[in-house]
Amino acid sequence: MPSPDPQRVTGRSAVLSWFTVVVNGVLAVGLLALSLAMLAEPAAERSWSTTACVAAATGGAVWLLVAASYHRNYLHVPPADPASVGVQNADGERAVVMTWRRTFQRQPLFVAVVVLLVALGGTVTLAAADDAGWWLPLVVVLLVGPWVPERIVEAARPSRLVLSPRGIAVAGPAGDGWLDWDDVRGIAVERENQWSVVRIVGVAGAASWRFRRRRRFVWVRAPSRPWLDVPGPAFTVEPQHVIEAIAHYRRVPAARGELASEAGRRRVLGPLGL
């Protein structure tokens, strides 16, 4: 397989992300400022009722929080965290374990909760007013509702990448997978939904490959081929060093034993491990 480009191990296009943040931030601030300005006027001169102004101000503030959370998730580059990589006991053997960064899971949960609460509020408000369109926000509730407990469970589950002398394990939100080193064909960087992922690809018909889907509220398809995925935003250290370490141990079987020691951790960390 061709060598992956570590620069592609990112979330989304920075230009698109900045455009999204700026546009939503401007609209949110505009709505918040307009509603607060109306509240400052005498009640008789307002174009909106007091209730509508308060609702609009609340919506603008929440909208601004969502825009800020989007920036935090897609544009903020956190510093490397060497402490998240350690040598631990994993499945009965010593291995190098990288605990995933979790911010990229929390932001969608926050947005889903906001959308659900707004839709619930809209449903109740319209139903109380005997508005014929009360069922429209209810559709949103029914669509988004099942994903909220799903996201909560995902955010609570421990996720990690394990490099042991025997093979590679990934414990992610969807399930747990395993590949022996001898069944690893290569590494690729692929686009998977909203993220780029580092994909550890197994040989066709890899005998060691296994994937156990975790219990979920919403059904999610298991990988169709022997591979293990680590989302780009989950890396707590430079992805390039992790990719290079995996490639090294795939090529050099005699070196795999060091994954049970600090030597393996230092290789995964790259310059941070020196």
Rank of each mutant, 00 (worst) to 15 (best):
Q7D: 13
R8G: 07
R8F: 08
V15R: 08
V15W: 03
T20V: 15
V22G: 03
V23K: 03
G25C: 07
L27W: 06
G30C: 09
L32D: 04
L34N: 12
S35W: 12
A37D: 14
L39W: 08
A40S: 15
S47V: 14
T51M: 07
A52M: 06
G60H: 02
A68W: 11
Y70H: 04
H71E: 09
R72G: 14
L75F: 08
H76K: 10
H76W: 14
V77R: 11
P78T: 08
S84W: 10
G86P: 06
G86C: 08
N89F: 14
D91F: 09
G92K: 03
R94G: 01
R94H: 04
V96Q: 00
F104A: 07
Q105F: 15
P108T: 12
V111N: 08
V113M: 11
V114H: 05
V115D: 03
L117R: 11
V118K: 05
L120F: 13
G122E: 04
T123H: 04
T123W: 09
L126V: 13
L126W: 09
A128S: 14
A129Q: 09
D130S: 15
D130W: 15
D131R: 12
G133T: 11
W134P: 05
L136A: 12
V140Y: 01
V141Q: 02
L142G: 05
L143G: 10
V144I: 15
I152K: 05
E154S: 15
E154G: 13
R157I: 13
R157G: 06
R157Y: 12
P158F: 11
S159R: 13
S164Y: 01
P165C: 06
V170Q: 00
A171V: 14
A171P: 02
G172M: 04
G172L: 02
W178M: 02
W181T: 05
V184N: 00
A188F: 01
E190I: 11
E192D: 10
Q194T: 15
S196I: 05
I200N: 00
I200T: 00
G205A: 04
G205C: 06
A207V: 13
A207F: 11
S208D: 04
F211W: 04
V218H: 01
R225T: 13
L228R: 00
A234K: 03
F235Q: 00
F235I: 09
T236R: 11
E238V: 15
P239A: 07
Q240K: 15
H241S: 05
V242Y: 02
A247Q: 09
P253D: 02
A255G: 03
E258N: 03
L259V: 06
A260T: 02
E262N: 08
A263R: 02
G264V: 05
G264A: 00
V268N: 00
G273M: 04
